[in-house]
């Protein structure tokens, strides 16, 4: 029994160590933290200019626009997710040494979500207001993003891990992960749309919650397996 308690502590050390390192790296690079957010805001700004500044039109498309912008902002941050770690060799050390690899992968994704998905979620109601999104839809929009962005980050992580050693990784990454983002997009947008038309948004939100729990428990295994291939390439 003593041994298993000790093992548990080792696992916790492994998880915490990776999380601490990745958060330090992320917050050590404020521009990388701010860029996806700035991108999110700029894309949102383009829609009233490109489509129509009419409040009614904006309100109708606000959920979709916010979600697509969030999706693209997530995608933007993914390319660099494992690349630097691969180039400096820390990725191969992680793959080689960590037992199990699942834990540092979860920590890595959690850290990445903290600096991408979380700020997007927090910023969304403000931008929703700028797009004239119905006030009662703002909370469902936020909840949807809070549940949906972890799934986006995880699925994106699979794509990032699969393309980590490749020269033409960026465009390929978009092709790999965007189709997988479709259900999250649909559910997230519907939650906000249902709420803005006065209907309860709980259905799609519950589906998103189910999807998030499923993704959090299973997708890191796929990322870990993909990373093992990624460090082999060179």
């Amino acid at each position: 029994m003593m041994a298993s308690a000790a093992d548990e502590r080792s696992l916790w050390v492994l998880f915490r160590g990776q999380l601490r390192r990745d958060l330090k790296l992320a917050f050590g690079q404020p521009s990388e933290l701010a860029n996806p957010l700035a991108f999110f805001v700029v894309v949102i700004t383009l829609f009233p200019l490109g489509v129509s500044p009419e409040p009614g039109v904006l309100a109708g498309m606000a959920p979709g626009v916010l979600w697509i912008a969030a999706l693209l902002a997530t995608l933007l941050g993914l390319e660099a997710l494992f690349r630097r770690d691969r180039d400096d060799g820390t990725l191969e050390q992680m793959v080689l040494r960590a037992q199990p690899l699942y834990l540092p992968v979860v920590a890595r994704m959690l850290a990445h979500w903290t600096v991408t998905g979380l700020p997007l979620t927090l910023l969304a109601p403000l931008l929703g207001g700028m797009l004239n999104l119905a006030p009662e839809a703002r909370l469902p929009l936020m909840l949807g993003l809070a549940l949906g962005t972890p799934v986006l980050v995880l699925l994106g992580g699979v794509g990032a891990a699969l393309t980590v050693g490749l020269r033409a990784g960026g465009v390929l990454l978009a092709l790999l992960v965007l189709p997988l983002f479709v259900p999250v997009l649909i559910l997230g947008v519907s939650a906000a749309e249902l709420a803005s038309s006065g209907l309860p948004p709980s259905g799609p939100l519950l589906w998103l919650a189910a999807g998030a729990s499923f993704a959090i428990t299973t997708v890191p295994f796929a990322i870990a397996a993909a990373l093992r291939i990624g460090v082999e390439v060179g």
Binding site: L14, G17, K24, D88, G89, T90, E92
Partner: peptide
Amino acid sequence: RPGISGLLSAADNLRWHLDL
């Protein structure tokens, strides 16, 4: 490849290796 992240300090890097 060094297995050391250039953005982190030497101590942080080594601590991470211990944690791993």
